[in-house]
Design a binder for these strands. Sequence first.
DNA 1: CGTCGGTACTGAACCGCTTAACCGCCAACT
DNA 2: AGTTGGCGGTTAAGCGGTTCAGTACCGACG
Lengths: 343, 343
Amino acid sequence: MRRLTIADIAAAAGVSTGAVSYALNGRPGVSPATRERILRTARELGWRPSTAARALTGGRSGAIGLVVDRPAHVLGVEPFFMRLISGIEARLAEGSGTALLLQVAADPEGEMAAYTDWWAERRVDGVLLVDLRADDPRLPLVRRIGLPAVALGYPPADGGSGVPCVWDDEGAGIREAVGYLAALGHRRVARVAGPAVFAHTVRRDAAFTAAAAAFGVAAAPPVHTDYSGEEGARATRRLLAGADRPTAIVYDNDIMALASMGAAGEMGVDVPAELSLVAGDDSAICRLTRPALTALTRDVPEHGRLAASALLRLVAGEEVGHVPTPPPVLTPRASTAPAPGPR
Amino acid sequence: MRRLTIADIAAAAGVSTGAVSYALNGRPGVSPATRERILRTARELGWRPSTAARALTGGRSGAIGLVVDRPAHVLGVEPFFMRLISGIEARLAEGSGTALLLQVAADPEGEMAAYTDWWAERRVDGVLLVDLRADDPRLPLVRRIGLPAVALGYPPADGGSGVPCVWDDEGAGIREAVGYLAALGHRRVARVAGPAVFAHTVRRDAAFTAAAAAFGVAAAPPVHTDYSGEEGARATRRLLAGADRPTAIVYDNDIMALASMGAAGEMGVDVPAELSLVAGDDSAICRLTRPALTALTRDVPEHGRLAASALLRLVAGEEVGHVPTPPPVLTPRASTAPAPGPR
DNA sequence: CGTCGGTACTGAACCGCTTAACCGCCAACT
DNA sequence: AGTTGGCGGTTAAGCGGTTCAGTACCGACG
């Protein structure tokens, strides 16, 4: 059975293919009556446009791309991406007729290659950039090759080379967490962060140090990890084993906080009596573990949704500026408690 | 700057576009010398084929599709899909030049619609089907519309309508778990499963009941959930509150086991002293929590890899049969222990 | 030497859709 | 009445590849 083409529906409706095209795309040049007849036969025959033909005519490919660049062992447990994807999809499902192309890259080079290839092959109309870095090479790249892009993360100092950024004030979240811990009497707090190459890590680091100073608590230099539970637990062990053991630790994601709770338990350190823990993203994991994890709540799906929205507008030719979103807020649960008295 | 087309590289190499096409696709009809010259200029000019044009010629679209159909609140924490996707991508990255199209559907109808649309629009060359159901309507659908598909799950009784299945003997895993628990002295075991509509749930249910009988342990009827931590915890609470409280519970995924550990703790039931827990997938979560979760280890990424592999072969026109994979094996950790003595 | 066969390559049609250019027709206006 | 100008359509030229039918050339063979 052959594919249905506009020629078929043109024949069925007794008009030319040109008329069909105009009718289907809602452009002028066909009378309301003919338009209706064409649309009806198209619907009855179950016609769907060939994306290939559409794309070939210089139109859109009808897809946007997302490259996920994290080590495989992190990807499996990191709820962030699936939540982000849910949000993106939610927006795309709202009648945009746009699909999501996903690629898992092994390294930043692979990620860049994906963008170049996708764009050269006209597979996507635009891409979403996650995890902005300092002097992120992807920004000049997409600019140079003309690939529409929207980034998730704080806009870089130079404005982002015309790449709209969906961002929230991560500093505010960190400040709230540190302030809360200070109010609970904690005087030595630590931070276990993601990779230092990420711009948001650096920003949070700075916010953390500044907040600690402002609230008069001693802050160890942030420990950087690859976001994996293993590295999170190791960092926690080192912090707990060192002199000036912190009484509270703030994590950059949930998995590290979860893993660290186990590590603390093994070292005989009770959570929250002796150690308070704050998780980073507030995925469902925080609510499911015991003690439930206090967390910095960020609406990750909403970020995805907004980013997808911005990208669709950008692709459509609209001017799109940076998109600020509400800052993370602290959701206190059972993993934080007043600081222990002096031992 | 215009897009680079084969016409450009034809001009640069001093041949016709036809010759370029032959050379680039490694077909006969061009001399080795010319072929080399063409390939070189194409490389130097940085030419990449337009997927649209390729697809239009009746060729492949160069993409496969995956629809993920689980409630949003489950998707966020369920490691299964991200692990599966990692595996799929790993295979696709091996020089297939194939991309992955991802869609999150709200319900089975939305999933079916996605397949129909994708195929009608020739967006994908084939799809991967997850979570086979009893009398799964997707099987006749893909068959009817001629969409190449590979399913993940046990082949249905009717052979699967020509859809190759990548499967493992889940029953063996369940039997091993029940046997292990029986050997530890457990005499009352329960099972908290996924939705009963999934074929693999039913198969595991049956295996569970049979294994319990074989090992002489009392098995409560399996409790079915939506895979969410919340429902898993609720099921556990009910089991623990009922008469004939089980001393061991086997879960269908990791998140429910994790949530249940918390629920048990709240009820003052110690894991593993009073209650043994076996998780379902063995994602990293099992190793990260304390006590670490005993789990049925399944190589989910490998399943993805094999499924992608089978689909690529199918799309290429090869005959592809069902693909058996090693059965899940039990990985004992700290969440299982000898059954408590009679209270 | 003419013919045959094979190789290397060209030219053009075609895939399904968009769109600029054109065309016929009728109402309105001068 | 003749010109103008819309409206409602048609025609055909691409878009960037693939592929089939030729064609030019060359060595081999009878």
